[in-house]
Write a protein that binds this DNA or RNA. Structure first.
Lengths: 216, 216
DNA sequence: GTCTATACTTGGATAGAC
DNA sequence: GTCTATCCAAGTATAGAC
């Protein structure tokens, strides 16, 4: 915790190396997937010796988890900022579409998928990844609550259930898009969803406007 | 081409080895995932020498593709048989739920996901896997056509689009179920879908449709 | 404390035995 | 034609240099 030496610079002697490795791990996971994410491949991309992976992170999987944390944190922050002020279903769909397209393009979605699928091959990794996916489903649940609120929709919609489906759809669409090398099909779905959301807007909007919130 | 020797039995001296390897590859992919599916791991499980992978299949990925073909073919056959006679939306949802649960339990869904995700790591594999996923989306599209038919639903439903979403959802739910070690959340979704499908039944049924037949 | 050189294990592929 | 013994590259991990 103590940052001795250079006062203003948080950039330490070894902190650079750690960061370089994490960034490289992110890139390799995004582009070449889990089973190509070896200590050698990552270190080469980071421009440093392969042994440093073990010195700084103890093992390859630990480094991969650090990479997952890195992108997860960034993304969650973006998401939460974007969620502020969203109240109507169609707004939420727009947000989801934007965010999903970004994740598709940056490769963040691919990274997550690779880690989940890769977890099958490494004992113990599943638990770790699971803990990092859950905040996500939580976020989606909260977003749905925020939008459905106390409207009549609340009677027919179970946020946690929809959230699970939405996250699954997100992951599945990434798999297919990646395979096709084409995100068009995925994006077309969001257009369709927007039309449906417009209907939902009428329901949430008819009883009350941007109004009070109650929770069950 | 000519199967000399034993006339009626296609079971040759080497055919046994091939089959043992394919079966072992299926098992390893299902249980330990793509990056653990090495020539050695598979051969060990098949109880034969590791070099046979290369003699019979040329490379590890070729063997993995043979494994994918094996389960894909079996599954497609089962699906098509089950689709016969399905006419109402709720019947289709029931079929989907049953089939999905089976694939979840046998690990067939896991195998497919592993191959798709793993394809990122191996140049050229993506194309091969894609060709094996497409029949699937085709099947889902055909099933939707069969159910929507010429009913009023046809005006608002685009089978190819829904099919894409359904396949994506299938893959995503597998990822999450596997991670959670719990398929309950996925199955709950199908219950929900059944209720929605019951509404759709009314729409398709209003023009034409038999009303008996009760299935669990 | 940071990093490199080295040890050892596992994996892909083939030359050659049967 | 079928399979095994062997080779080399790639992977993880650490002992020890700086």
């Amino acid at each position: 915790m103590v940052r001795a030496g250079s006062a203003s610079r948080p950039t330490g002697r070894s902190e650079d190396t750690r960061r370089a490795l994490v960034d490289a791990a992110v890139e390799v996971l995004r582009r070449e997937g889990f089973s190509a994410a070896t200590a050698r491949a990552i270190a080469t991309r980071a421009g440093c010796n392969q042994g440093l992976v073990f010195y700084h992170f103890g093992s390859v999987v630990n480094l991969l988890l650090a990479a997952l944390d890195e992108v997860s944190d960034q993304r969650r922050q973006r998401y939460e900022e974007a969620l502020v002020g969203v109240q109507r279903p169609s707004q939420l769909v727009d947000l989801a579409a934007r965010v999903f397209r970004e994740d598709l393009d940056t490769g963040d979605a691919a990274l997550l998928v690779e880690m989940i699928a890769g977890a099958t091959s490494t004992p113990g990794l599943g638990e770790q990844v699971k803990a990092r996916v859950e905040p996500w489903t939580q976020f989606a649940t909260a977003a749905l609550h925020q939008v459905v609120g106390a409207s009549p929709l609340a009677a027919v919609v179970e946020p946690a259930e929809i959230a699970h489906a939405v996250v699954a759809l997100y992951l599945g669409l990434e798999l297919l898009s990646h395979l096709d090398g084409d995100r068009a099909a995925a994006l077309a779905l969001f257009d369709r969803a927007r039309h449906l959301a417009a209907l939902a807007d009428l329901i949430t909007g008819s009883t009350a406007g941007p109004q009070d919130e109650e929770e069950t």
